[in-house]
């Protein structure tokens, strides 16, 4: 792969949480790369470690901790930053947050303070990171609110978060996240709490801004369909591991991993002929504290190979154009 174009590289990341019942491994052996200006989708059911992984990129993983692994950030025209070695609370990582890598969350209410007006909050972010004077800040606030399609930005700047609808709040978050022209935007399920129409609008907006500003986007969602037409590459996670990684078309039309396949078939599709019943994946995602041995998906897998899948962790293998972690594709199976 083109080494020069890499923006962010994650290698063998493992994140754990200490809990009452013991240590929970939320993310294990996760590796991926983000190219400059690309859109990466990350999918998986809730609890599979999407948020923990993405927060770790900004060192916001607390109360969890990085047990192992590397996160390297390659800013253009600057030396590489080893994010995993930065102290989570120190100055260095804080300058990277927002300015280089910024993030939007599922529930914008929690990241927007309730007590300050929209204008103040967006202004604060701009002023802190770009060190602009009062007048420029104000102009930039209005500019950025307008750029995310909010009508009457001067009026909205004076309003408080609870006076806006969910979709509008998410737009404000996007405006804030993009106000410093980051190289990477992490969007952690920004549309999950919204209805499909608003979701589509937010997605369109993100795409438009991405094209205008040329940043890379890591778009996290639990719904494959949302990013199918958008992302260049899609990473599928299950129980803390990446189980498949492929270009978006490949993933959709030739999914490899049994989980990906089952997931795709479980979605009601508006274009498919009407079925009487949807096919489902049996059972539920196990609690991370009881991670199954071997392949974490094997208790629910219809194609599991007894004696192999329940014993050994499947390695990542290249299968056609995808990278898959499944014994159906690994050499071990034939031995």
């Amino acid at each position: 792969m083109d080494q020069k174009n890499i923006l962010l590289k994650v290698e063998n990341l493992k994140i754990q949480f200490k809990q009452r019942h013991g240590i929970v491994t939320a993310v294990e052996d996760v590796s991926f790369q983000i190219q400059k200006g690309s859109i990466i989708g990350m999918v998986g059911e809730s609890g599979c470690g999407k948020s923990v992984t993405s927060r770790a990129l900004l060192r916001l993983e607390a109360p969890g901790y990085i047990e192992r692994g590397k996160i390297s950030y390659y800013p253009p025209n600057r030396p590489v930053v080893k994010i995993d070695q930065l102290a989570p609370r120190k100055e260095k990582i804080r300058t990277i947050r927002w300015r280089d890598i910024s993030m939007i969350f599922q529930e914008p209410m929690t990241s927007l303070g309730a007590m300050h007006s929209i204008g103040n909050q967006v202004g604060e972010a701009i002023r802190l990171h770009l060190r602009t004077d009062k007048k420029t800040t104000k102009r930039k606030v209005i500019e950025s609110l307008r750029s995310v399609g909010l009508p009457r930005p001067e009026y909205i700047a004076k309003q408080y978060p609870h006076q806006l609808s969910g979709g509008m709040r998410q737009r404000v978050m996007i405006a804030m996240a993009l106000s410093c022209n980051p190289n990477l935007l992490i969007a952690d399920e920004p549309t999950t709490a919204l209805d499909v129409t608003t979701e589509a609008q937010i997605l369109d907006l993100l795409l438009e801004r991405q094209q205008a500003l040329g940043m890379a986007v890591l778009y996290i969602t639990h719904n494959l369909a949302v990013i199918s037409k958008v992302a260049e590459k899609i990473i599928v996670m299950y129980l803390g591991r990446i189980i498949e990684e492929a270009a978006s078309d490949v993933l959709f039309y030739a999914p490899k991993h049994p989980y990906t396949r089952a997931l795709l078939r479980a979605m009601p599709k508006i274009t498919a002929p009407l079925q009487k019943k949807l096919s489902t994946i049996a059972g539920e995602v196990p609690d991370p504290i009881h991670r199954p041995f071997g392949c974490t998906f094997h208790p629910r897998c219809t194609e599991k190979i007894s004696g192999l899948c329940d014993r050994t962790v499947p390695p990542y293998v290249q299968a056609d154009d995808s990278i898959v972690a499944c014994h159906l594709f690994s050499k071990l199976k034939n031995d």
Partner: peptide, 16 residues
């Protein structure tokens, strides 16, 4: 238009 994955998102600009 808003159904995820149905239309090519890049094509319908009018939504946002």
């Amino acid at each position: 238009d808003a159904v995820p994955g149905l239309k090519n998102r890049k094509a319908n600009e009018h939504m946002s």
